[in-house]
Computed example of a mutant assay.
Amino acid sequence: MTITIHEEITFKTNPNTLYQALTDSKRFSEVTGGAPTDIQADAGGSFSLFGGMIEGRMIEIVPNERIVQAWRAGNWESGVYSIVKFEFQQQENETLLIFEHVGFPAGQVEHLKVGWTENYWEPLKKYVSE
Results as ranks from 00 to 15, higher is better:
L96S: 03
E92N: 15
T4P: 00
P36A: 02
Q90A: 15
A21E: 03
E7Y: 02
W121Q: 06
L96P: 05
F47G: 03
Y127L: 10
I54V: 15
E87D: 14
Q90S: 14
R72A: 10
V68S: 09
A35C: 06
A70G: 11
G107K: 04
V84C: 07
Y127D: 07
W121Y: 07
V109F: 01
M1E: 04
N93W: 03
A70C: 02
M1L: 11
L18P: 04
F50H: 12
F104K: 04
I3M: 11
K126Q: 13
I9C: 11
N93D: 15
E55A: 12
E30D: 11
V80R: 12
F99R: 05
R27Q: 11
F11G: 08
V80Q: 11
K85R: 14
G74Q: 05
Y120V: 13
E55R: 14
P36T: 00
I61V: 10
Y120C: 09
T32D: 04
P105G: 10
L124V: 06
K125I: 00
N14K: 13
E110I: 07
Y19D: 08
E60W: 02
V68D: 11
V128D: 04
E118C: 02
S48D: 01
G103L: 08
G79S: 08
S46L: 04
A43T: 12
D24V: 09
R72P: 01
G115I: 01
Y81T: 11
M53K: 13
N14F: 01
P15E: 04
I83R: 14
T10Q: 11
L96C: 03
G56D: 05
A35L: 09
V109I: 13
V102H: 08
V68Q: 13
L49H: 01
K85G: 06
I61A: 11
V114M: 11
K126V: 12
F104N: 02
Q91K: 15
L18C: 10
G52L: 02
Q89W: 00
F88D: 04
Y81R: 13
V102Y: 01
K113Q: 14
